[in-house]
Computed example of a mutant assay.
Amino acid sequence: MNPRPAAVYAPDAERAARVAAFREQFEGVVTNVARIIKGKDEVIRKVLLAMTAKGHVLLKDVPGTGKTMLARALAASIDCRFRRIQFTPDLLPMDITGTNVFNLRSKSFEFQPGPVFTNLLLADELNRATPKTQSALLEVMAEGTVTVEGTTHRMEPPFLAIATMNPLDHEGTYALPAAQMDRFTMQLSMGFPPPDAEVEMLDVHLADDPPVEHLRPVVHREDFLAWQATVPRIFIAEQGKKYLVELANAIRADARALSPPSPRAVLMLARTSQAHAMSQGRDYVTPQDVQAIAADVLAHRMVVSGSDVAHGFVHEMLAKVPVP
Rank of each mutant, 00 (worst) to 15 (best):
L126M: 05
L126H: 01
A129N: 07
A129D: 13
K132T: 01
S135I: 10
S135K: 04
L138Q: 08
V140I: 15
M141R: 14
A142T: 11
E143H: 07
G144C: 10
T145A: 09
T145F: 03
T145L: 04
V146F: 11
T147A: 13
G150I: 08
G150T: 05
T152A: 02
H153G: 04
R154T: 02
P157S: 10
P158N: 09
P158A: 10
P158H: 10
L160E: 13
L160N: 12
L160I: 14
L160W: 11
A161I: 12
I162E: 08
M165N: 10
M165Q: 15
N166K: 09
N166M: 05
P167F: 04
L168E: 07
L168C: 04
H170A: 06
H170M: 02
H170Y: 14
E171T: 12
Y174K: 14
L176D: 00
P177I: 07
A178V: 12
A179M: 13
M181F: 06
D182H: 04
D182A: 12
R183K: 08
R183P: 09
R183H: 02
R183G: 05
F184H: 02
M186H: 09
M186L: 06
M186E: 07
L188E: 03
S189G: 02
M190K: 07
G191C: 10
G191K: 13
F192I: 08
F192D: 05
P193K: 13
P193N: 14
P194T: 06
D196T: 03
D196F: 05
A197W: 06
E198D: 05
V199M: 15
V199R: 15
M201Q: 07
H205D: 08
H205R: 03
A207N: 04
A207I: 00
A207F: 08
D208L: 12
D209H: 10
P210K: 14
P211K: 07
P211W: 08
R216C: 10
P217I: 08
V218H: 00
R221H: 01
R221M: 12
R221V: 06
